[in-house]
Every structure is written in C-alpha cells, then in structure tokens.
Amino acid sequence: MRCRDAATGRNSRMAKLAFLGLGVMGAPMAGHLRAAGHAVTVYNRSPAKAEAWVARHGGDRAETPREAAADAEFVMACVGNDDDLRQVCLGDDGAFAGMQKGAVFVDHTTVSAAVTRELAEAARGAGLGYVDAPVSGGQAGAENGQLSVMCGGDADDYDRAAPIIDAYARICRRMGEAGAGQMTKMCNQIAIAGLVQGLAEALAFAQKAGLDSAAVVEVISQGAAGSWQMANRHKTMAAGEFDHGFAVDWMRKDLAICLSAADEVGASLPVTALVDQFYKEVQGMGGGRWDTSSLIARLTR
C-alpha cells in the first residue's frame, strides 16, 4: 500500500514502524508518521505518555523497546543522551534484540559520534541497518513537520529510510558514513550558540542605550545581521519570556559533545566554550529548563 506525504508530495510505501521516545520532539514526529499512513507502535519510558499518544493518534504501544521493534521495518528513536540510547538499543529488552534482519534503526537523538559508531557496528553485527539522523528545528519544527534532518550511515540504509523521514522533514540529507549526521548536528549547535549570544548582546545593548529594541530588530534583520533566531526569538527575549523551545540543560549537553569532539579532531571552539560557560551561569540562576534564548537574562539582571 502507498501513502502520500503531505509535506513533500512524494509517494512512499506504508511501513510498519516503531518509535521510541515520546518527548516534546518524539511525540509529534511519531504523530506525523501516523498521519502519513504508517502503522506505528510506540514505546516510552513513562507508559502514561505512550498511552496518551495512542489515545490521540491510534496505533499501538509496547512495554519494552524490543516488543515495539518486533517485525518493524524501521525503528525510530528520539531519547535523551548516550546512555538512554544504549538502553533502548541493547540488552535483552533492547530494540536490536527484537528487530528482524534487514530492518533499519534511525536515531534522531543528539548524541556523541562515538556512541553512534558503537551502535552502528553492533547493528551491522546483528544484520541491521543504522542511520544517525539528529534533527534541528526545535519543538515547533517537530510539531509542524519542518525539521532539518542530517544523516549518517550506509547509503542504501539512508535511501530506504529517507521517504519515511520525509513525514516530518523540511530537508533530509545524507552527510556521510555513521557519525556524520551527529558531527553535522554539532556544527548546527556551534553556530546557534554564537548567534544567540550575539543577539542577546545586541538586544541588551539596545535596551541600555534607550533604543526601541523592536524597531532596532526591524531594521537590522533586513541586513546582514538577520537570522532565524532574530526573527523568532527577539520579542520573547526582550520580554524575558523563556518558557518555550530547547532547554538550557539540553543545550549544555550538546555543547559538551561539541567540545569533546573538537578535542578529538583538533578544532578550536573558543566562542562555543565561552557561551557554554554563560549557559552554566543561566543554570545557576535557576534557568536550566529555560529556552536557550535565555542568554539575555544574565546581561539584564
């Protein structure tokens, strides 16, 4: 049976899928898969979230990753960190134990390239495909099916998975072998860190100088300073509203991955290292769950 993806207009075969992890990103992504016509079984560490998702979208829920992955052609995951990912993949109750040979595991978690390569090797040993596919676009991108998806892995595995990923992707691209998707996501986080800090400083400066920050942004956003962060976050930053988007705690997790990888490849990330410490200050202010745009809070307190 064929289904048509509303975002891309491409036809893809309806598949049996599993989705592991129903947080603010995973739940809407899994919902797009159901809306695209796929058969989806979900797993979440907190069963109540899985029950609520099934009540809203249909499909099925499973008690373990292994049960969710049984007979699935593709298993998607969007969990918290390296350890969480190992837990849902490996062991007697892990997804790899339940997947049929030839099935493809697609990891949307932002994790280290090291754990990606470790799990990709374990998947190959079990006769499985593995695609690391971290995403960018935040909660709004997940809800609207407009995520940027950067992938690593075998080309054949990617080609099979890409039509499935299309259900929630604005762009999906293979960047290289296993780990390349995660390394590309690191580039994304490095760029965002500097952009948000620059915007925070510009807005704080405008306020101190007695300027209308909205008028300032209206003018400078049309020139070389314009960015997604400026267009989408300047109003809430100026108002001190940080209860949306990607949390500081998760950004620090990602930046730690970036800084560790930079040591491995011999790259210098002085701005990223500095902004990481600024986020540490925000955590000290009680802002660990604030959106990453909260960098301005340490400049205006």
Rank of each mutant, 00 (worst) to 15 (best):
D156R: 15
A126L: 07
A122M: 11
L128A: 09
A140M: 06
S148L: 14
Q146I: 01
L211F: 09
K208T: 10
G127N: 04
V149Q: 12
E201C: 02
A193D: 10
H108S: 11
A214H: 11
Y130P: 03
C151N: 05
V115K: 02
K185L: 00
A193T: 09
D166M: 01
A215K: 14
V111A: 14
T116Q: 13
A214D: 13
I164D: 00
A126P: 03
H108R: 02
D154M: 08
T110K: 02
R124N: 13
R160K: 09
R124C: 06
D212G: 01
H108V: 03
Q182H: 00
T116M: 13
H108N: 07
E118D: 13
G194W: 14
S112C: 12
V111Y: 13
D156T: 15
G153R: 10
T184L: 05
A161G: 03
D156F: 09
A142C: 01
L211R: 09
I190D: 08
R117I: 06
I190Y: 11
S148C: 14
Q182S: 02
I165W: 03
S112I: 06
G137S: 08
Q189R: 10
M183H: 04
P134L: 08
G138I: 00
L147N: 00
A155R: 14
I164M: 06
A215L: 12
D157F: 04
I190P: 05
D107L: 10
D212T: 06
C172R: 01
L195Q: 15
E218L: 00
A162H: 00
V149L: 14
L195N: 15
K208P: 04
G137W: 09
V115Y: 02
V131L: 11
M186W: 04
Q146S: 15
I192W: 03
V115N: 14
D212R: 04
R117V: 11
S136M: 04
C187I: 13
I171Y: 03
A193Y: 06
T184K: 08
V135Y: 05
I190G: 03
N188P: 07
A162R: 07
E118K: 10
R174Y: 01
P163C: 09
C187N: 14
G145W: 14
R174H: 00
L128V: 10
A202R: 04
A169V: 00
G152S: 09
Q207R: 15
D159T: 08
E143L: 05
G141H: 10
S112N: 12
A120S: 15
A122H: 09
E118Q: 12
C187E: 05
A123G: 09
V115H: 05
A200P: 11
A180Y: 02
A206W: 09
A142W: 05
S112P: 15
D157V: 05
R124L: 13
A122I: 05
K208L: 10
F205G: 03
L211H: 09
R117C: 11
Q189T: 11
